[in-house]
Design a protein around this nucleic acid. Structure first.
Lengths: 229, 229
DNA sequence: GTCTATAGATCGATAGAC
DNA sequence: GTCTATCGATCTATAGAC
């Protein structure tokens, strides 16, 4: 009944629909334990519903899994827009993009999605493609659009923004993402993330500096603290 | 008996031990289908032995899995040595390292190991660390040693070889590795790999070129860690 | 050591009452 | 729509014959 639902959610005023209840619970379980190690029994029990109810809302385990991954991808999309960076210096714009991207990649949700999607893409052929389009590909597009703008303004020489975006993305991710995926060590704190992204921005701007220019001399612009909303 | 073994191996002169027979078969299955989707029945059947024999050689499924991952890591180590590059120009040395590294990362075996280790590291805590030490960490060490040598010769300014190695590795891997892990598209051919690594080497050498300005890691241009609330 | 056969548990998915 | 109860298949792991 609605009683057990209220007990699980801890609040009764907004009667959370069983669908969202299931989705939330299944998301936690799939992202923490993976696809194979998460049973439909566990999802039903943790969500406080019966298995029959579970199968009334989702056709199969694969169907539920796809819904979870899609929802997680959709939730990460708003973070990767590069809006409102046009007026900033390039170094500052790149830093904010890189820092936001790094925070996104190292978030527990993103790590869980990466683990499970990478693991199951051979068994779910369209899942890997859907994830790539909804997640990394959008990040890359936004970054490439920003770099193309920078190139048009003549602040950097980026003839192929897509390639440059991939290199920037690869440097930002670096080994920290892999180490967190493998649980080699804890997630780097804010200061380490700042330092890493600063290094990446410096190398990137030198690598794509306009020919003849002595390079990014506006290091003074970095002395101010970076505001993180 | 030894008959079925000879039939499976296709040759009878070197009597392949059942242990290696099991290891080889299990490696293919685990790396192709993942840990959860590979059953001990399938391993026994494909290897041509009974399940009882299987459990006589390996205590459990997890034990067999760990042995597989360890063997795959050990096989990839010889590829990442950076020997015999001292006499080459830096650009050529970096290109050869990057190209070898890219070929290793995109090989089907490496992709399979990455998928399964990333997926199962939360359930096998030491597995992720063992893989990182045996694989990516060694690559990084060899690359950092090479970069340190380049720095000492004054050909590039690499004050922190480990950080620089991570950036180089990240750019080489880039999105191609992710796309192959997710099966978004086919593996890039030799010409594309050459072009990508050349771009990476160009950007890297510009980013770490010797110049009057301080290098990226010496912290001189930066104001120190930014405290974030 | 290696086999056949099976125990014991759990899986995904469903039938039928309410 | 939601529940209880259960089916049939499959899983890991083991017992006992040879």
């Amino acid at each position: 009944m609605a009683l057990s639902e209220a007990v699980v959610t801890g609040k009764s005023s907004p009667p959370v629909s069983k669908t969202t209840q299931i989705l939330r619970t299944a998301g936690l379980l799939f992202l923490e334990h993976g696809y194979g190690a998460t049973s439909m029994d566990a999802v039903a029990r943790t969500a406080g519903v019966s298995k029959a109810t579970l199968y009334a809302h989702f056709t199969s385990k694969a169907d539920l899994f796809s819904a979870i991954v899609g929802a997680e991808c959709a939730r990460a999309v708003p973070m990767v827009t590069c809006q409102g960076l046009g007026g900033l210096p390039v170094a500052e714009g790149l830093f904010r993009i890189g820092r936001t991207l790094l925070d996104l990649l190292l978030s527990p949700q993103a790590l869980g999605v990466y683990r499970v999607v990478i693991a199951e893409s051979p068994r779910f052929p369209e899942l890997g493609r859907a994830f790539y389009r909804a997640g990394p590909s959008r990040t890359l597009d936004a970054l490439a659009a920003y770099l193309d703008d920078v190139h048009r303004r003549g602040e950097l020489s980026v003839p192929d923004p897509m390639v440059a975006a991939e290199l920037f993305w690869g440097m930002v991710r670096s080994h920290a993402h892999l180490r967190c995926l493998l649980l080699v060590d804890d997630s780097p704190d804010s200061a380490h993330r700042d330092g890493h992204v600063r290094t990446v921005v410096t190398v990137f701007m030198r690598g794509f500096a306009v020919s003849g220019s002595p390079g990014p001399q506006d290091g003074g612009a970095w002395s101010g603290p970076v505001s993180s909303p």
